[in-house]
Design a protein around this nucleic acid. Sequence first.
DNA 1: CAGAAAAATAAAAACGTTTTTATTTTTACG
DNA 2: CGTAAAAATAAAAACGTTTTTATTTTTCTG
Lengths: 341, 341
Amino acid sequence: MERDKSHRDVTIKDVAKRAGVAISTVSRVLNGLDKVSAKTEKRVREAVAELGYVQNALAVSMVTGQTKTVLMVVPDFTNDFNGSVIQGAEEYLKARGYTMLISSTRDFEEEDFEKLYRRFSGLADGILVVQGSPDRMDHARWEKPLVLIDAYRPQEDHYTVEIDNERGTFLLTEELIKNGHRRIGLVGGIPGESASGRRVAGYLSAMEHFGILADRRLMAFGSHFEETGSRAMAAFLSLPEGARPTGVVAVNNLTCVGCMKVLAERGMRAGREISLTAFDDHLLARYSVPGITVIERPTIEMGREGAKVLLALLSGERPKEKRLLMESRLIRRGSVIPIGE
Amino acid sequence: MERDKSHRDVTIKDVAKRAGVAISTVSRVLNGLDKVSAKTEKRVREAVAELGYVQNALAVSMVTGQTKTVLMVVPDFTNDFNGSVIQGAEEYLKARGYTMLISSTRDFEEEDFEKLYRRFSGLADGILVVQGSPDRMDHARWEKPLVLIDAYRPQEDHYTVEIDNERGTFLLTEELIKNGHRRIGLVGGIPGESASGRRVAGYLSAMEHFGILADRRLMAFGSHFEETGSRAMAAFLSLPEGARPTGVVAVNNLTCVGCMKVLAERGMRAGREISLTAFDDHLLARYSVPGITVIERPTIEMGREGAKVLLALLSGERPKEKRLLMESRLIRRGSVIPIGE
DNA sequence: CAGAAAAATAAAAACGTTTTTATTTTTACG
DNA sequence: CGTAAAAATAAAAACGTTTTTATTTTTCTG
């Protein structure tokens, strides 16, 4: 039953011995760096093949000083958006010989970024942080290249990949207003978080632009989880007839789901009894009937571009423009009911 | 503008010098291994604090021979199920001082598992593979502890974390049959993939159990992506009246979405014009109206348990039972229409 | 064909740790 | 107070590479 544990990984030393050369020669063959005679190269390659030698990446990193690894930090893995960003980044990195470490911050709670950065320092050459924007996160502790995705911190100057969040909610709000809505509820996300903040600003800006007074009772905040959307929608629905919003803007995918959940529970539906618009084109927005009018973001591409910027930084480039703004667009579906004047 | 690049990470050597002791002493203090006088320990700890020393994990791995890292391999990151599994595993591992490397296999295509295993050998102590079951995957190449999640390969003997897939589709099919359905369509996943295979078996077994002859035209296969569901549903709907299924079983979340998409496009809905049941309780199943009757799996827990088994293996334990079967359950929603006899 | 230059290869140092072995310091005891 | 034993610390080896420096072999030139 016992496996043979005398099994030791074959090292460059073994290859050297087998080929009858010095280990430095093997290294040079493998890295194609220096001049090596054809005869020697052949011998070495044969030895490598025969022994099934594979480089010890750790040892390589040790001496070269680079790990060829990137750390990706996301709030959690169950969110569609994060998944897509990871997907985009991972594909790009893998294709370029990079390896991806990953860590979740569980919605920024409990996790101390400083601890995280200490822990991964030395393990990764660079880092991609998704939505890492609350003040509590001290990115300065990470002394290597860093790219923020879907976040922006005006007071510092990091490389970022974003979309125009403010414009996004402006469009969503405008869409409701243009359909005759005046009492419009807002489901905001986490207060101190930058993306959410910009989206709230977009809502306010649209309201002001169209000369509608924003009503405090119609603005709800919390997390960017379902529950916040549910609570908000429940609160909206329990307002007296005249104060109740006829349309709602949810600033992200999960709060939108929360809204829909409450509606479903009460036998209501977005696009029937109430209008709903939201950020991010998730499954439920796309395929529920009627579909939800949303702002679609290029999620996979955001991950890819983030990785791209990071690798550029790692190779010593320093792109002029620090903020990379991606395109987003409004997708009109049946969830917005026109209201006759 | 140029950053000061003379900045070198502080090493154990620097700490030793600062504290006026040998590096071995510093190491012993840090690892709390051997006896060190209180006075010396204090000096070392002070030096560590003053210099802000943090261990180089690479060097530690180099000499200890373990990386304290686990590799997670998933088909892709955009799938709900995978996201949850990752979430569960990552939390468990992180809490125990392990780091998580991650790699996607893009639905088993193009990616050569052997290449992947070569690449990560030496970088991780163990590996968690989600749905890695097609024959083409040669897990034997990975010579360290390995745990398969949501997969089973009868011919080999790996540690696995699964649910009873066959029973799952049996229940879904039975639910339709008990509601009077006789012509029941099946949207299968990838043929050679184990989980899909078991689920197809469950469908067939239920049909047989209730004495219904399975109809080849009512069984569709392909990938486990949306498109397969869409194609299948479209094909079902285009069958002549008498042959058209009155109920459909989709073997996973995305194919279910594909079915719903086609229905939505034609102004139809699951639970109205046709019945639909599926595997995995995704957003759309949960919150669309009516909701979809599904088999719910403990996704987060599957990730957590996988990680648990893996860490047990890493610490030398060899649990007797190699297959860990998790509980799953049928959730009844409005998508199944009772058919009068 | 001698000698110098060029090419190829080998040897050694380095990366930052842990761990084993060796040395020094302290303690205990007669 | 001298010495043996015990305790504490230091030194050195090792992990598997790359890279720099040193050495050997080959090629070229007159």
